[in-house]
Design a protein around this nucleic acid. Sequence first.
DNA 1: GTCCAAATAT
DNA 2: AATATTTGGA
Length: 300
Amino acid sequence: MRAPSDPLRSRGRSGAAPTDHRDTVRNPSLLGRARPATAEYVMLSPRGGRPQDATAPAPSSSSSSLRHADGMGDGAGASGRVLEWEAGLPEASELTPVSHPLITPALAAAFRINIAGGAFPAAASPFDDSALAHDSPTSHLSFHCAEEEDVEDDEEGEWEAEDAASGSGACRGGRAGKKARMVWTPELHHRFVEAVAHLGDKGAVPKAIVRLMNVEGLTRENVASHLQKYRIYLKRTRSPPTRQPPPPSFPTAYGSPFNPHPPPDASNQNGYCAFPSRHCEKLERDQALQAMGWKRAKDA
DNA sequence: GTCCAAATAT
DNA sequence: AATATTTGGA
């Protein structure tokens, strides 16, 4: 959208062998740059949000509905939508308790974490609760570390097990040589989408998005990368490739891949799945990922 | 120098 | 496929 860029794109594989980033662990910076995480969006905030953070405008009035239908279509009415956004945050009663099991058996085993019973025992892990216990309101929004070779991922392989408290060691699970790779969970993605929608087409640039999302450890580059893909997705859905028309109306519309509607049985009124409960996580993740991969059921 | 977006790499 | 890194331009 910016510069039409010229046909000078012969760059790229410029002989120079790129350094091997695979093993480049740069966690310290990721985890250290925590912003004063206030209780803003979080799914655990009993107050339904009271942002005092710089990034989040103060709620001066009570709005009601959560809808950002115009999405990135235009950047108008941003402040109003922010309010709506806040108002749309889930109530404490609608959320899955922190005690909810967040670690897969496979990962738990790999990290030697005791997750017996499904709940999260306060002092069960060798890293001591600070390492993985999600006692921070935003901890579930921190991104995860995906092990790739060592841990046998039985299914998807990526799960959250991260918290600022554990420092740079968290992502290595006691092993060196592994690098951190961000995982866009449904929650994070949702936040991303909302941020983008609220910023509007023009304002939705990485820096602004990162700011709005206010997710600890999330970098501009993380967002830029995701944004790139997100835009590709939007493009695809906007221009009928020449067949099978019907991509989702818009990410912010209920039922669309980017704002998955909760299943009747597992949903809370808002259709907001706060935690990666078995049910919601699966669904949202599935849909979100499917969307991002634009591999719509059978369209592709 | 910072930021962005696209291209490319892993 | 998903995310990271590089690249080139504003």
